[in-house]
């Protein structure tokens, strides 16, 4: 896109904000404001249960926005876990602020955590581990990249058109989808920061209109799919893919889903940090007497290779 087009597109994106700011610029007066941040100091507990992984917990104190440096770890906490209401184990500290329980959670079970740290009210939270997404796919067409011969190894890939069938389980499910690209030679990965395909199940909250994208838009960072109105049904859609990529789906519980969504919303507006009138974002938390997140997610990885 040439510079003029970028300029006009920027104008389009800014819409009336640009004009409002132009209108008031002659009169306006700007000054730096010194805020007296008075946020209460809380313990932040972060833990996402994954059936493929042992349990890891991060435990730090929050800080006010004007504090700098590292977050202060919570070092003397006791972390007890419960599975379907029964004691499941206690996490041990592995480094300052990091705790670990050498067990893997199971899909469909409900886990609770109780964190006791001297001088603080006990933190509690609960999550139910979701089933892994049941995704089948069929490669409908495969076409060699037009410049395969000209370029380096990175240009050796195929265009794919892939039909997906996501068999939804009964109950609320919150699917998230993103792609990883193999970073040659297949040992490292590159995170794809945008996803662009059309599906009626996708939540548009992070849709960004982009004249350069194939569909005229893309989803920033992730595509979030919900089963609202189609619970227990087969969700079918088609995506453009390429080889040398991994298509990742994960099924989040309600808490992690809300945490993820509020985080993505925050990142979206962080990109527009000078924009006034944006609706600010409160990061979702389900931690009683503290903050952070205790949620769960179950992943599947679909690999598309050249071979």
């Amino acid at each position: 896109m040439n510079k003029q087009l970028i300029t006009i597109y920027t104008l389009i994106k800014m819409k009336v904000c640009f004009t409002v700011l132009c209108s008031v610029v002659l009169l306006s007066c700007e000054q730096v404001v010194g805020f007296d941040y008075q946020a209460e100091r809380k313990i932040c507990l972060n833990c996402i249960l994954n059936p493929d992984s042992i349990v890891r917990v991060d435990l730090y104190y929050t800080r006010t926005l004007d504090e700098t440096g590292e977050f202060e770890p919570v070092t003397n906490a006791t972390l007890e876990f419960f599975e379907n209401g029964e004691p499941w184990g206690t996490a041990n500290p592995v480094s300052e602020g990091n705790y670990q329980l050498n067990k893997k959670p199971l899909e469909g079970k409900t886990y609770a955590v109780k964190c006791t740290a001297p001088g603080n009210l006990p933190l509690t939270a609960e999550t139910t581990v979701q089933e892994k997404p049941d995704v089948a796919y069929v490669v409908q067409s495969r076409k060699k990249y037009e410049r395969w011969q000209e370029g380096s190894e990175s240009s050796h890939f195929y265009w794919l058109l892939v039909d997906y069938q996501l068999k939804d389980q009964n109950g609320k499910d919150f699917y998230w989808n993103y792609t990883l690209g193999w970073y040659s030679p297949y040992k490292k990965y590159n995170y794809g920061e945008r996803v662009s395909y059309i599906s009626p199940y996708i939540d548009d909250f992070n849709r960004v209109v982009d004249p350069e994208s194939k569909n005229g838009f893309y989803y920033k960072l992730y595509a979030r799919l919900t089963d609202a109105g189609v619970d227990g049904e087969q969700l079918t859609f088609t995506k453009d893919m390429t080889t040398k990529k991994i298509d990742v789906f994960f099924n989040a519980d309600e808490h992690y889903d809300r945490y993820m969504k509020s985080s993505v919303q925050l990142w979206l507006i962080e990109e527009w940090e000078e924009l006034p009138f944006k609706e600010p974002v409160q990061i979702y938390s389900n931690i009683e007497n503290g903050t952070g997140i205790f949620g769960s997610a179950s992943f599947i990885y679909l690999s598309f290779r050249n071979e």
Partner: peptide, 10 residues
């Protein structure tokens, strides 16, 4: 007004 460590997104 508050800042906390976050989980790195998937």
């Amino acid at each position: 007004d508050a800042e906390m460590p976050g989980i790195m997104p998937p």
